[in-house]
Design a binder for these strands. Sequence first.
DNA 1: ACCTGAACACCGTTCAAGT
DNA 2: ACCTGAACACCGTTCAAGT
Lengths: 208, 208
Amino acid sequence: MSGSPRHSRDDVSEMALRLLDEYGLPDLTMRHIAAALEVRASALYWHFPNKQALLASVSARILRPMEDVRVEDMTVSETVRRLGARLRECLLAYRDAAELVSSSLALGLVDSPVQPQLMAVTRRDGVPDSLSRVAAEAVMHFVVGYTFHEQQRLSADSFGLLPETTSSLNPEHANARPADGGDFEEALKMIADGLEVSARQHTETSAG
Amino acid sequence: MSGSPRHSRDDVSEMALRLLDEYGLPDLTMRHIAAALEVRASALYWHFPNKQALLASVSARILRPMEDVRVEDMTVSETVRRLGARLRECLLAYRDAAELVSSSLALGLVDSPVQPQLMAVTRRDGVPDSLSRVAAEAVMHFVVGYTFHEQQRLSADSFGLLPETTSSLNPEHANARPADGGDFEEALKMIADGLEVSARQHTETSAG
DNA sequence: ACCTGAACACCGTTCAAGT
DNA sequence: ACCTGAACACCGTTCAAGT
């Protein structure tokens, strides 16, 4: 059929995402990605300057569904909670996605997945951009960190590791026990409430 | 002088922390740590089962100053802000410390650096443990993620990278500009305020 | 108890050369 | 425009053997 199966940038990152989900981040090597595309590792350097850039394009792909969240009719608090919950869903959709996105975000190689939509709503409601940016950072870092930790526990469990540690039979370490799914939403609510308090303080100060 | 310079576990992690600060995480290899101790890489496997365990002991060392924070006389809100600020200081004290601690925390190889002291104060004030744990997670993940990003920007700047991107001359990307130091405390305040709102809601509900 | 020596099975990246 | 081939300079980890 196809005599010369040459690839696009998008082909590469699409395949990389598939391999990430199937084999995990430690096995997402340039050689494995290349092999899956029936190509040598050196060929990938025509499409990307280095591995970090390739991983950033995979991160952007993972975060793409964030764009579909419609926030027009939401309150500020609803928007914070909705964007946070959706971000967690995006990260849980692929194996090791939270770890990958965490480092791409820290390196500044992908845009904030929360800021644009949150800012649209806060501007509509007269909340200062500075507060909105801060809240977007708080939500983003909390969700990515929380889900990173959560995702590690999931794959540790599936590997059969931590058999007695996770069963929380040790009252000595009850304080250290991981939070469950409902705690995630509780934390988002805290940040949302905190943003509303700050916004209220701002309008009182500038109006009164 | 010393004929047989054999090492302890603590010697190894102390040297590893020095090398981390001097050369950064990518160069913190088993071979480099061993060489600095005048030993072969394989010798490290007598002290630690693998590299991740060694890195976890370095993380614990970085977080040790968290224990010195005295919270007895603080309000809940002050405690959140103080512990968050101190955590950031701990991470900024060594090169790439935030990235290292981020992964150790996600892997569950080090304890929460926020929870014990926050819980002491919230218990004193009758705030439910569940809320306290959630807030501790929010603070921890936010601070580590924020500082990870911040620290990457610092070393990118010192490397002379991102010369025009960081000078924020591009109005198109003004929304994406990184938050400054004051924004960090603003975000901690949001989480602290959110915790107080939740605590208030709880006591109202349970008291009638 | 603590370490060496040597090997195993890999990495990311570069670059001249091919088509 | 897109890729190969071959090399460079490394990795983490294991394990028999030494002292």
